[in-house]
């Protein structure tokens, strides 16, 4: 899917691209970590933490690379804890609050169904570092997708109440999914440099996965084509991100230059 070329990617676009991956993992990992201790069953509590831990690990790899590309002598932790919300490049979908377990797992499912083909494509990236991170993250993403699909299907099909809640979650989150496939100049530059795939191809794969599994879950795909945008380019995040960062960054901001 990735066509190799000798073109060198504009380093600005590469940094932007890597930051997006790191911020996606950071923000979603943080949301998943918020569940710790309050899951619907002990087994689920443990599984949610595993997903969060995988995502924190992915964050460390992506943001460490971003910090190197940036070349301003900052670390992955500096990027995570010392940037303002406007500098974040995560998808709006991922900063959505957990709400109930249904929303959490639907958000996870919609993202996993994108991450799996996306990371698979990145495994043959012309940028070796990107390829290496994608190979490790891809294994984790495949398991995340298996688990989130199983749960979306089970709860969609389960009881009247679980069906209603899952349909609500899908309706509420649907208009945030499209941002994953919005192609901007960074995406085009990455594709031209054979660093990342054409998002149109990922979109097609995502559609197949999502349609098939939502069918199994007896959930109706909303017919709205409206797409909320502004996360991956940082132009307009929602209010949720600021609150998340106020919590996440409190120690680094209150006691700057400390060792923890």
């Amino acid at each position: 899917m990735i066509t190799h070329s000798n073109q060198t990617a504009d380093s600005r676009h590469l940094l932007e691209f890597v930051l997006r991956q790191g911020d996606n993992a950071l923000v979603l990992g943080h949301r998943m970590s918020e569940w710790c201790g309050t899951g619907p069953a002990l087994e689920e509590d443990i599984a949610l933490a595993n997903t969060a831990l995988d995502l924190i690990g992915q964050t460390q790899m992506w943001l460490a690379y971003a910090a190197e590309l940036e070349g301003r002598d900052r670390s992955a932790n500096d990027l995570a804890f010392m940037r303002d919300a406007t500098d974040f490049r995560n998808l709006l979908l991922l900063e959505q609050p957990n709400r109930d377990f249904g929303h959490t797992m639907m958000r996870q499912f919609l993202f996993d169904a994108y991450q799996v083909p996306f990371l698979q494509a990145l495994e043959s990236s012309a940028d070796q570092r990107v390829a290496d991170i994608a190979a490790k993250s891809g294994r984790e993403a495949r398991y995340h997708l298996e688990r989130s699909s199983d749960i979306v299907i089970a709860l969609g099909d389960g009881t009247e109440e679980s069906h209603r809640r899952m349909q609500d979650a899908l309706d509420r989150l649907w208009s945030y999914a499209g941002e994953m496939f919005v192609t901007d100049e960074t995406d085009i530059a990455m594709h031209n440099a054979a660093i990342a795939p054409d998002l149109k191809l990922i979109h097609a794969q995502w559609n197949d996965t999502v349609q098939a599994r939502l069918n199994k879950a007896t959930l109706a795909v909303p017919d709205s084509t409206f797409v909320h945008k502004g996360g991956k380019n940082g132009v307009r995040h929602e209010e949720h991100l600021g609150h998340m960062l106020a919590t996440m960054q409190v120690l680094q901001r209150s006691y700057p230059n400390s060792v923890w």
Binding site: I46, A47, N50, E146, D150
Partner: peptide
């Protein structure tokens, strides 16, 4: 789910 949970736990 038992298999998934076994893996996670």
């Amino acid at each position: 789910m038992a298999m998934n949970n076994a893996r996670d736990v």
